[in-house]
Amino acid sequence: MKQKLNLSNRIVLLAGGAFFIFPMLAAFEFSLRTNESKSYGFDNFRWIFEQDGFKSNLSVSFRLALVTAICVLVLMVPTVVYLHLGGARWKRLVEFICLVPLVVPVISFALGVGTAFPIFLQSTVYELSFLYVIVSLPYTYRALDVGLSSIPLLTLVEASRASGASMRQTLMYVIIPTIRTAVNGAIFLAIALSLGEFTLAVLLHWDTFPTWIANVSQGHVLNAIALSVLSLFGAWVVVMIFALAPKSLRSNKIQEATK
């Protein structure tokens, strides 16, 4: 529904774009400055990669994201599917529960976790993954709920069961592929949250990529700016991969089937 953009729309888009682009450009300009002033180079970026913490903390954050994504997939997908089938009477309750993390500021939540959890659970960094599943609940639930509402789920499930498939096979072969976009969306949200989360990590005294950035920033201003540019750029790349992936996967599948 492309309509004609009038002048005021153009101004809004340009001004809005400028507000977002200029700080990024400025950060980029700063990140290229070298200590011997008046010249540009990639020194600040090079410095980042030379740090020991860079690789190790990045890898911690990626592993956290992976575990979070798996938890969302294993816990939330069957749950929301069931709410759309037999568990409809529980839907309102679960919906309510999934809104709770919006009401609880993360810092309050972090305090509660700090006092409530037994030592054995607090001894592994992966406790953060479980907490990220909770914090991302409002978004993952909504993404999956919308996805499932847009397909004739009951008929597909019954067709699958009548064909002889177990509930697990139905989930794997029929439901998840059909709502792949929604599942991708939910997982993407969970991953994005895991990679950028700071409050829980710092208050529970774990070192992740965001807390490492915060540490490095003290005393290395230019390097920190370079890191900021890098992390924003990295997030962008990940988003683009996710935004483009489902389509290309599907077209591959069709080609394969046509052979």
């Binding site: 700080p23 400025a26 300009e29 700071f198 201003v221 920190a224």
Partner: peptide, 20 residues
């Protein structure tokens, strides 16, 4: 892009604004 920007925060965001 909005989904990336909505998730920015913390030190990276702070330094971007310091630079700008």
């Amino acid at each position: 892009s909005a989904s990336v920007l909505a998730n920015t925060g913390g030190v990276p965001l702070a330094f971007m604004f310091l630079a700008g």
